[in-house]
Structures are given as C-alpha cells and as structure tokens.
Computed example of a mutant assay.
Amino acid sequence: MTELTLCSPQPIYVIVETVYPGRGLPQLWNTVGPELTKVQRHVAQVCAVEDMFFDGERLDGLPGVFELLREYLTPGTQITTRRTGRRELSLVYAGFRNILRAFTEVPGLPSAVTRERDLGTPPSPFVYGVDPIPQVHLYGNPRVIFTSPGGTSPPTAVAVYHATSGRLEVPPHAEREAVIRGLLLR
C-alpha cells in the first residue's frame, strides 16, 4: 500500500526536461522542411514532511471518522501537525510542449521562416497538474546543457529553481544527483 505523507510545500522546484527531436512532417528532398520538437517536462516541488497528531498522539496515516467528528465539533484543538525535519519531492506537473520550426536554417532564408515557434501544450489527457513555474524553461536557455548519457537516451537537462529569489541553478551532469539529494537533506 502507498504511504501518504503530509507535507508543506517549499518554494524550491526541480525541473527535468527531455527533448525528443523529430521531423514528424514531410520534408523536401529529405533535408529541408518543417521540424517538430517535443519537450517533455516534469516539475517536482520540495516539501517539508509533517506528522499528524490527535490529542497529542501521533497518527499513522489519515484521521478516521471519529477523529474528524471530534475536530469538527471543536476545531483546531485535537488534530495538529508538527514538522519532522525530513524533506521529500512531490511531483506537481508532468506535461509537454511542441516547438515548430518551419524550415531548418539554410543560408539565404529569412530568420522569420527558420525561427522556432512554441506551440504550447495541446489539450491532452497525458498532462498531470498545472505548471507552477511556466515562465522558467530549460529548452532554449543558453545556460542549460542537455546531455544524453551513453548516447542512447534522449537529451535531458535538470535544474533547480528557487522561487523566492528567482535563481535558476543548473548543476553539471555529474553533480545532478548530489544537488537534489542535498536539497532533501537541508
């Protein structure tokens, strides 16, 4: 059974974007033509784990009917929460956006035809949640490097966004796991 934890959201997000380049549309002589790129995006939020107590005793899981009824009759006195000092990641958004380029960059073509255009996210049952930081993108950011370990997986980038300061931290590929682990141990 899945363990449910109560947590308070913190203003720190971990962003993972994966790029699936593809033509997807007919090409002229198999070289010049439209390109459609799909950018898959996952956003997780750091949260502080809390324990729930009823009359001073720790609850294992959610309160039952009896506890909820007593809390309803005298609100704010029986059910309380206390931070444990642990942090976890909570997935808040999983989705994608499509980016179209009418023509690949060919000398002599105007930049208006070769510029990438973000088509956004079409209505889809495969989108989870609402993106809490839609203004922060990794794809297209010159500071972000997409890597493909082993050359077989699609290019992926990871970054940490601090919402209170507006700072985007882009760790090198070798340090990604350590940076995320460090967020959870603070």
Rank of each mutant, 00 (worst) to 15 (best):
Glu105His: 10
Thr2His: 02
Phe146Arg: 02
Ala44Arg: 10
Leu36Ala: 10
Val92Phe: 02
Leu100Lys: 01
Pro21Met: 02
Pro75Ala: 09
Arg186Gln: 14
Asp60Met: 06
Trp29Tyr: 12
Ser153Ala: 15
Leu168Met: 06
Val92Ala: 03
Ala163Ile: 03
Ala159Trp: 00
Pro75Thr: 09
Phe146His: 02
Ile180Met: 14
Leu91Gln: 12
Leu36Phe: 09
Val46Thr: 12
Val19Arg: 09
Pro125Ser: 13
Ala112Met: 09
Thr18Gly: 07
Val136His: 12
Glu50Ile: 02
Ala112Phe: 14
Gln78Asn: 09
Gly95Tyr: 05
Ala94Ile: 00
Leu183Tyr: 06
Thr18Ser: 14
Val106Lys: 03
Phe146Leu: 01
Leu168Ser: 05
Thr152Ile: 08
Glu177Tyr: 11
Val46Gln: 11
Ala157Ser: 05
Ala48Lys: 07
Glu105Asp: 15
Pro172Phe: 06
Arg167Asn: 13
Pro122Asp: 05
Ser90Asp: 09
Gly129Val: 00
Gln45Glu: 10
Leu68Thr: 01
Gly33Val: 09
Gly108Thr: 08
Tyr139Thr: 03
Thr84Cys: 08
Arg41Met: 01
Val49Gln: 06
Val106Phe: 01
Ser124Lys: 03
Phe54Arg: 00
Ser165Arg: 07
Glu57Phe: 08
Thr152Asn: 11
Gly151Cys: 11
Thr77Arg: 14
Glu169Trp: 03
Pro63Tyr: 09
Pro26Ala: 10
Asp131Pro: 05
Phe103Tyr: 10
Trp29Lys: 04
Leu183Met: 13
Gly140Gln: 02
Arg176Pro: 01
Thr156Pro: 04
Tyr13Met: 05
Val158Tyr: 15
Phe126Glu: 13
Thr104Val: 13
Leu68Met: 11
His173Thr: 12
Asn30Cys: 11
Thr152His: 08
Glu71Ala: 00
Glu35Phe: 01
Leu168Thr: 04
Phe96Arg: 06
Arg115Met: 10
Glu17Ala: 01
Trp29Asn: 11
Trp29Thr: 06
Val46Gly: 06
Gly150His: 09
Thr121Arg: 05
Pro171Trp: 07
Phe126Pro: 00
Arg115Ile: 03
Met52Lys: 10
Leu185Gly: 04
Pro154Glu: 07
Val130Asn: 00
Ser90Asn: 12
Arg117Ser: 08
Gly151His: 09
Ile133Asn: 00
Arg82Ser: 14
Val16Cys: 02
Leu73Asn: 01
Val92Gly: 05
Val179Asp: 03
Gly61Tyr: 13
Gly95Asn: 07
Thr37Ile: 14
Thr121Trp: 00
Val130Thr: 15
Glu57Ile: 10
Arg83Pro: 15
Glu50Thr: 03
Val92Trp: 04
Phe53Pro: 04
Tyr72His: 11
Leu138Ser: 05
Arg143Gly: 10
Val16Ile: 10
Asp60Arg: 10
Arg58Cys: 08
Leu28Thr: 10
Glu88Ser: 13
Pro155Leu: 02
Gly120Asn: 03
Pro63Thr: 11
Leu183Trp: 07
Ser148Val: 00
Thr80Val: 07
Tyr161His: 13
Gly85Pro: 04
Ile99His: 06
Gly33Phe: 09
Leu69Ser: 06
His162Trp: 06
Arg117Lys: 12
Trp29Leu: 15
Gly61Glu: 12
Thr84Arg: 06
Gly166Ala: 02
Phe96Tyr: 15
